[in-house]
Computed example of a mutant assay.
Amino acid sequence: MKLYLVQHAEALPKETDSKRPLSEKGRNDAAKIAAFLLIADVRVDEVVHSGKARAEQTANILSKDVWSGQAAVEIEGLGPNDSTDHLMHSAEISGGDLMVVGHMPFMAKMAARCLTGSENGMAVAFEPGTVVCLERIDDSETSGGWALNWMQRPSMLGEHKEV
C-alpha cells in the first residue's frame, strides 16, 4: 500500500481572501505536480482532503490524473493541528493506495509518525504543493512500518504552461 501525503499548493493570504483559495502560483504548481504524477503513472484508490478551500482545490486538480477523474472526498481529522491517529488507523487498514491533501504541521507530523513511529521531529521538509510517497512495509524492525519511496516538490519541476 502507498500513502501519498500532499501539502496543499500555495494559497492566497487570509487578508486577501479569508477562505484562502489557491493563488495563481498555487494552481500552476498543483498542475505541475498533476502532470508529474500522470507521467509517473501514479494511480490511487481514493483522494481525500481536509475540506478547506486550498486543500480541496489542490486535491481536485490532482485527482483528475490519479483517480479516474473523480472529485476528491472531504474527510474530518486533516486540519493543521489535528491528531494523526485517525489517518494512521485508516492507512493501516486500507486495502489500497491513498492520497491525502492537507496542511502543515499535520502533514509533517504524519510523515514523521509513519517514518519514525513518533509525530515529534521532522522527517520530511514540505513546501506548498509537495507530494511525499510512503510505502507500507512488513518489516517489524522498522520504527514506523513505512518507508519513504519518493517525494517531489513543484519547485523541482521547472515551468509549467497551463493548457
Results as ranks from 00 to 15, higher is better:
V6Q: 02
V6H: 06
Q7S: 04
E10R: 11
A11Q: 00
A11S: 14
K14N: 08
K14D: 04
D17P: 01
S18V: 13
L22C: 10
K25L: 12
R27L: 12
N28G: 08
D29M: 00
F36C: 11
L38I: 11
I39R: 15
A40K: 13
R43F: 09
V44M: 06
V47F: 09
A53S: 15
R54H: 04
E56L: 11
E56I: 01
N60F: 05
I61E: 02
L62A: 02
S68N: 14
G69V: 07
A71W: 04
A72Y: 03
A72L: 05
E76H: 08
H86W: 14
M88S: 12
H89K: 14
E92P: 05
E92C: 08
G95E: 10
D97F: 00
L98F: 09
M99D: 03
V101A: 00
V101W: 06
M104S: 10
M104E: 13
M110D: 05
C114Y: 02
L115R: 05
N120C: 08
M122Y: 09
A123F: 06
A123Q: 04
A125E: 15
C133H: 04
L134D: 07
L134P: 06
R136M: 10
R136H: 08
R136A: 08
D138K: 14
S140W: 08
E141K: 07
S143P: 12
S143L: 15
G144R: 04
A147D: 12
L148M: 10
N149C: 12
N149I: 09
W150N: 03
M151R: 03
P154D: 11
M156H: 13
G158E: 10
G158Y: 13
K161E: 13
K161P: 05
V163E: 13
